[in-house]
């Protein structure tokens, strides 16, 4: 047996558990869900009709299209805000915080992950309520109260709080791998801070930003809890429509079709971001 063949066999052996795992817990369930989306819910129960009728119904129902558009709008807003907030935060932790405090700063950054999703959302609903903590502060300093509770703005705030921390971690990981001599070389060649950021730092940290942005998109577009608790029923997100079909109408095929649409959105986001995920040479 040649060395290459042995290496290849060893590589396959090491990869096999991950492949089996992915096939068993992602590919097979996804295929089952996609197949179920071609069934129909009738008065007699679920019928394997093998039709695209559920997809036609989604496209023909303005409320369903609106729900998908709502999810896209919320997700893009949250992703953009989270990137804008996370980059300076990651920069401060990586560059400005003394090394001995960095671990504490990172621990504080991931603190929101220590609480459950539901608790965090309810905490925000108390913060943003008409007579909540935020308006108490605003009125205390003579400013008018804000009507943020039960709104898309509340959903975006709740999401952004969580995903800013997630993106901070991925961007921080990219920043700490930047060789410091690259910035010194840029400065020696006459580049100012803005040019150095634009031509050196941003391209080299793009993979961290892209990975974090993709994770944010994938988790946000399919989330049900945050819009349910913080949105107050003012907007209907696609994930809420999935739950309506599952919980109230027992229409599993329609819920599956909507879920496939969400998966297509996530796939599209990956395709758009994939080229930024590779480290530049």
């Amino acid at each position: 047996m040649s060395l290459d063949a042995a290496e290849a066999r060893r590589a396959w052996a090491l990869t096999l558990p991950a492949v089996v795992w992915t096939v068993a817990f992602f590919v097979v369930p996804f295929m089952a869900m996609a197949a179920l989306s071609l069934w129909q819910r009738t008065a007699a129960g679920l019928v394997p009709a093998w039709t695209l009728e559920n997809y036609r119904a989604i496209l023909g129902e303005p409320a369903a299209v609106r729900a998908i558009l709502n999810s896209i709008e919320i997700t893009l807003t949250v992703t953009a805000l989270s990137v804008v907030l996370a980059f300076p935060l990651a920069w401060i932790i990586a560059e400005e915080v003394p090394p001995r405090w960095r671990r504490l700063a990172l621990a504080l950054a991931v603190l929101p992950f220590w609480t459950s999703y539901v608790v965090r959302s309810y905490a925000w609903s108390l913060m943003l309520a008409r007579q909540g903590v935020l308006n108490g502060w605003l009125e205390g300093i003579g400013l008018p109260a804000l009507d943020l509770a039960n709104s898309r703005a509340a959903t975006v705030i709740g999401f952004t709080h969580f995903f800013t921390m997630l993106l901070t971690l991925t961007i921080y990981a990219s920043l700490t791998q930047l060789p410091p001599n690259l910035r010194r070389a840029a400065a020696d060649l006459g580049a100012g801070p803005v040019a150095t950021f634009h031509h050196v730092i941003l391209p080299l940290t793009a993979p961290g930003i892209a990975v974090g942005a993709f994770l944010t998109f994938a988790l946000c577009v399919g989330d049900y809890v945050t819009p349910q608790i913080l949105g107050g029923g003012r907007d209907l997100a696609a994930a809420q429509l999935v739950m309506l079909n599952l919980g109230r109408r027992a229409d599993i095929p329609m819920a599956a079709a909507l879920s496939v649409c969400l998966m297509l959105l996530v796939t599209l986001a990956y395709l758009l971001l994939a080229r930024f995920m590779r480290a530049p040479r």
Partner: peptide, 17 residues
């Protein structure tokens, strides 16, 4: 201002929202 289920409805009016 909101649309909610049992507990959310009670909370909305009980808290003055």
């Amino acid at each position: 201002a909101s649309v909610g289920e049992v507990v959310a409805s009670q909370t909305a009016i009980a808290t003055g929202a």
